[in-house]
Nucleic acid binder design. Structure first.
Length: 436
RNA sequence: GGAGGGUUCGCCUAAUGGUAUGGCACUGGUUUCGAAAACCAGCGGGAGAAAUCCCUUACAGGUUCAAGUCCUGUACCCUCCGCCA
């Protein structure tokens, strides 16, 4: 949610931002409603002030005749307040409906475009591996090696589920181990920040295992409830499954006011993500690229507004470091206005090279939402000068297991169909060199 | 799932239905060579240039001129029972 004051003072910017994001909004109507809201609020507050004052008089007053008269009067005033409150409630409801539909404004360096065709490659890293044979896709290799079984999963659970088996399972935990070591080592983080030219204080990340269920009202505050049909809903329990650890990490500090010196706060959370993939019918149906269920390690950072853009750069640098460590070629992409998330002001994706598909595929995302989510969550910071404002929030993938495994399988495949295990992972896998 | 108890500032805590108390911690200041101690001030949120006003005792309603306090519902926490990895 944007600040209503900001909206009132920057109508054109807000309108233009929404247009770039391909979202339709009616600012004029919102402002008119807001005028109404403020007027009604003022009237009610004045009446309340009167009641408060007179009630005090009643408590003090000795003259019982006067008392009875005042009580009579206040009864009438109370009726009036009630009526006005009814009206205000309707006004606020309508006001809120529009407010929730106003997207965050794209940063100035966000490229403009209608959809993912407008995304801009910022840089790329790594040599694409050369093969003396035609590289295969992950699901062919995975099936032959008996480490990915989608057929059994289809019978048991349906499409877009999989059994991961054997060494691939060990590799998942190896990846997690490796990433946790990076994110909890201050020296490594300092090195990453320095190389990326990021000038913020780095500290360790606090590891978290968050709940995978979330209340829908909280999801609304995270601005991740724009498309309810993409989530698994449990109406009997008023719960839904999270689509990312972000949803229960970002909401950890609802209603909290941080002191300036407490920030930044950095979390790394591990959870399973659940997605219905509604509207993705027929897309990426083979293998484990697009699953209803996958595990993911996610970073969530609460920071001061002036540091938060740097913070996003830091998070992207970490993503790049992870991929470099694994020896996987990638490109960093500035996601354009028409493709970026509703609450994002700047979105950076990292796409990793997938030789089997002969293209880059999204493996990481870094969402900078500014104070947009924080305003809805009411997560704020008290500055040194006493002023209170929303914190800024960043959320970014460390590693999405399914897609990382695909990248490793396809990049490290051998002529005989085996998979060479990246050296950095071997120490977590009993020293093994190949999956075969 | 059943029974009972609870929820007031970061922590603790007070409040015959009469308009949220005090302490600790914290922040700033005085003092000090510096610190500790002591003393002074601030310390739930919002609007406002300010005066001031409104809101705030888990949340949502209700009764009342007036609700932390009475009533109803919900959430969460604790204890015990049941079930359970």
């Amino acid at each position: 949610m944007l600040d209503i004051k900001f909206i009132r003072e920057n109508k054109e910017i807000v309108q233009e931002g929404a247009k770039k994001k391909r979202v339709e909004i009616d600012i004029a109507k919102l402002v008119a409603l807001d005028d109404e809201r403020l007027k009604e609020l003022k009237e009610i507050e004045d009446l309340r002030a009167e009641v408060n004052k007179v009630s005090n008089d009643i408590a003090r007053d000795q003259d019982s005749a006067l008392k009875i008269q005042l009580i009579e009067e206040m009864r009438a005033v109370k009726e009036e307040i009630k009526k006005k409150e009814e009206k205000l409630k309707t006004t606020i409801e309508e006001w809120q409906k529009i407010m929730l539909k106003i997207p965050n404004i794209p940063s100035v360096d966000t490229p403009e475009g209608p959809d993912d065709s407008g995304n801009q490659v910022l840089r790329s890293w790594g040599e694409k591996p050369q093969f003396s044979f035609k590289p295969k896709e992950h699901y062919e290799l995975g099936k032959a090696l008996k480490i990915i079984d989608t057929e059994t999963a289809a019978e048991v659970s349906g499409a877009r589920f999989a059994y991961l088996k054997g060494d691939l399972v060990l590799m998942q935990f190896a990846l997690l181990q490796m990433c946790f070591e990076i994110l909890t080592n201050e020296e490594t983080l300092k090195k990453i920040a320095k190389e990326a030219n990021v000038s913020i204080d780095v500290s360790k990340f606090m590891p978290v295992l968050p709940p995978v269920f979330v209340r829908p009202v909280v999801q609304v505050k995270m601005a991740r409830f724009m498309t309810p049909e993409e989530h698994y809903m449990f109406p009997n329990d008023d719960l839904m499954l999270i689509g990312s650890a972000e949803h229960t990490l970002g909401s950890m500090h609802m209603g909290k006011i941080f002191e300036e010196r407490e920030l930044p706060i950095r979390y790394v959370g591990y959870s399973t993500a659940f997605r219905r993939e509604a509207g993705a019918a027929g897309k990426d149906t083979n293998g484990i690229l697009r699953q209803h269920q996958f595990d993911k390690l996610e970073m969530e950072v609460f920071s001061l507004p002036e540091n938060s853009m740097q913070e996003q750069n830091f998070l992207v640098a970490i993503q790049e470091y992870v991929l470099k460590t694994l020896g996987l070629p990638y490109q960093v992409v500035a996601v354009c206005t028409g493709d970026m998330g509703f609450p994002d002001t700047r979105q950076i994706d990292v796409e990793t090279w997938m030789p089997g598909q002969n293209k880059y595929r999204e493996t990481h995302s870094a969402d900078y939402t500014g104070g947009f989510q924080a305003r809805r969550l009411n997560t704020r910071v008290r500055r040194a000068n006493g002023k209170i404002e929303p914190v800024h929030m960043n959320d970014a993938t460390v590693i999405a297991i399914g897609r990382a495994l695909i990248a490793i399988i396809e990049n490290y495949q051998q002529a005989d169909g085996s998979i060479k295990i990246p050296e950095v992972l071997r120490k977590y896998m009993g020293g093994k060199e190949f999956i075969k």
